[in-house]
Design a protein around this nucleic acid. Sequence first.
DNA 1: GCGACAG
DNA 2: ATCTTGTCGC
Length: 230
Amino acid sequence: MGYKLELSIKLNPKFSIKKAHELQGRLSEKLSFEDTLPETVDYVAGVDVAYLKGLSVGAVVVLDFDTLSVVEFQVAHVKTRFPYVPTLLSFMEIPPAYLAIRKLHLEPDVFLVDGQGFAHPYGLGFASHLGLILDKPTVGVAKSRLCGKLESIGNHQQVALLNDDGVVIGAEVITKQRTKPVYVSVGNKVSLERAVRLVVSCAQKYRLPEPVRMAHLIAGSEKRKLQSAL
DNA sequence: GCGACAG
DNA sequence: ATCTTGTCGC
């Protein structure tokens, strides 16, 4: 079901995988690794996308940074028009994610996104691409590694760096003991150090930081709702 | 040529 | 990601 779409895209001269990678490389240069976050964060958002047949369900949730309680959430669904192609995930997930985010009444200080940020072969994972479009601070929080070599930091056992040709592109973070680590990288307008701190502070009881975990649950419930409505 | 490959 | 109940372990 996905190969047909992938084929049509590969045959489309207006959008080849090679051209998409070149675009990612150019956009990556516009990323900011500076900390533009306010001293005290009030709202942290979580973003995720779920799939149902030919539909993509985007979900965004806003939590109070201090209590990690949900203060708002929005969902949106659109027909999936781009297949999952490793390294091109953002092209598939941005439409539903962006539509949901546009519905927000509150403006989050930062968005924790389910996927890679700068820790990407062309320096532009979903979190970074979304960060440029929103022109807001974003952090990539992936459940598995896409690229980069591990590089331990002294006697630090909770955080290891992801290195790519001598460049630090992200970090492997153990948010909860006895569970697999998560991969954190800068999306846009935030430093890696701050990004890691945000993820760690938002992950208390579960492996995934609460914003991302909540967004995942909301996308899932919305999917079930659409499911039964068919 | 071979292996890797977010969600 | 998705299809899915119970079950083993911290």
